[in-house]
Structures are given as C-alpha cells and as structure tokens.
Amino acid sequence: MRVMVLIKATKNSEAGVMPGEKLLADMGNFNEELVKAGIMLAGEGLHPSRKGKRVRFSGGKKSVLDGPFAETKELLAGYWVWQVKSMEEAVEWVRRCPDPMPGEDAEIEIRPIFEAEDFGAEFTPELRAQEDRLRAELERPRGS
C-alpha cells in the first residue's frame, strides 16, 4: 500500500526557520534508510504558507487566495510518499523518524493513498487505461 506521510507545520516552520545541520544530517540518514529499504517513493520539505496560494472552488467560480494561511496546525511543512506493507509498518517507520521540529511539539500524519481498486465499478476499463497511460508518461524522463 502507498501512504502519504504528512509533516505538520509549526510556528517556526511557518516563520521560515530553517533546520540546522544536525537535523538535515539526521533526516538525510533517515531518508537513506527509507530508500535502501524500498519504502520511500518521494519526499520534500515545503516553503512556509506565505509563499503559497489556495484556489477556492465555490458555486462554479474559482478564487485565488494568497498565503500566509492562519491555522498553522492545519498546514504542512513537508511530506513523503512511501510504499509499505501495512499502516502498522508506516507507523513503525515514523516512530524511527528524527524529531522534525526540535524544540516544538510536532505531529506527523499518515494517510493511505487511493489505489485503482478502491474506486470500484465507476473506474471503468477506459478510465483504467487512461490512468495507466498517465502513469507511464510520468515515469518517462522529461524531454524524451
């Protein structure tokens, strides 16, 4: 199963406080473990929400909101995408993670990613073929 591992933002991450050398090294080592174990598919840190935008959809209209966004506890500071055998395995990996926000309370959320079979009959053979084509295109190196 694939999961998205969400590192929640804190006051410091939203203020743009950058991680120190020790945390960068510890996270680099943790990421290396994840890659060697075949767990990590992707992962990145995110800039503070003041550099972001939100697009709101309401009543058929779209409006753009500029950051920063108020509720720090609902914002993200980074993410991973992992391939794991179970949610329990994902939890065990998160338990091994270095503290992502030293000196502050931190929270990491783990959410399963939908797979094709989760959509049932509504995900028709034509839609599955389209999804397969898109995935193949994404896996191709850019410019080829």
Rank of each mutant, 00 (worst) to 15 (best):
G45S: 13
G45I: 10
P48T: 15
E92R: 01
A106W: 11
L41Y: 10
G38Y: 01
M87R: 00
S13Q: 08
I39S: 00
G78A: 03
A90C: 14
G60H: 12
D105I: 01
R96W: 03
R96C: 06
M27V: 02
K22H: 02
A15C: 03
E14T: 07
R50S: 07
K51T: 15
I113A: 14
D105M: 01
Y79I: 02
K62Y: 05
E109W: 12
E89W: 02
V84F: 13
E21A: 10
K8M: 01
E89D: 07
L23C: 04
A106C: 14
G60Q: 15
K73R: 04
E44H: 12
G20F: 06
E89I: 00
K73F: 00
K85P: 14
V17T: 05
P102N: 11
G59R: 13
P100K: 03
A106I: 12
S49R: 13
E107K: 08
P100M: 09
E14W: 05
S86C: 04
K8E: 00
R111S: 14
M18Q: 11
K53L: 14
E115H: 04
V81N: 06
L41M: 13
W93M: 02
I110V: 15
G45Q: 08
F114D: 08
S86K: 10
G59S: 11
E74Q: 15
K62L: 02
E44I: 07
E88S: 04
S13E: 14
K11M: 09
P112N: 11
A70Y: 13
T72Y: 00
P19C: 00
W80L: 12
K61M: 00
K51E: 07
G16F: 10
P100H: 05
E74F: 08
I108T: 15
L75G: 11
G38T: 03
V91L: 15
E115N: 10
S63F: 03
A25E: 10
L46Y: 11
W80D: 03
E117H: 06
G38Q: 01
D99L: 14
N29M: 04
F114I: 03
E117Q: 07
K62A: 07
M27R: 06
E74C: 09
E44C: 06
E104F: 10
N31H: 02
M101A: 11
G45D: 02
L23H: 09
S58N: 14
W82G: 05
A90K: 09
E88M: 01
W82A: 05
F30M: 01
G60F: 08
D105A: 01
G20C: 15
G67P: 13
P19Q: 01
L65M: 11
I108E: 06
L76K: 12
G16C: 08
W80T: 00
F30H: 09
I110K: 15
A116V: 15
E89T: 00
F69S: 07
K73S: 10
E71G: 13
C97T: 15
V55L: 09
E74A: 12
M40S: 04
L34P: 05
S86T: 10
V17G: 05
M101T: 12
D66G: 11
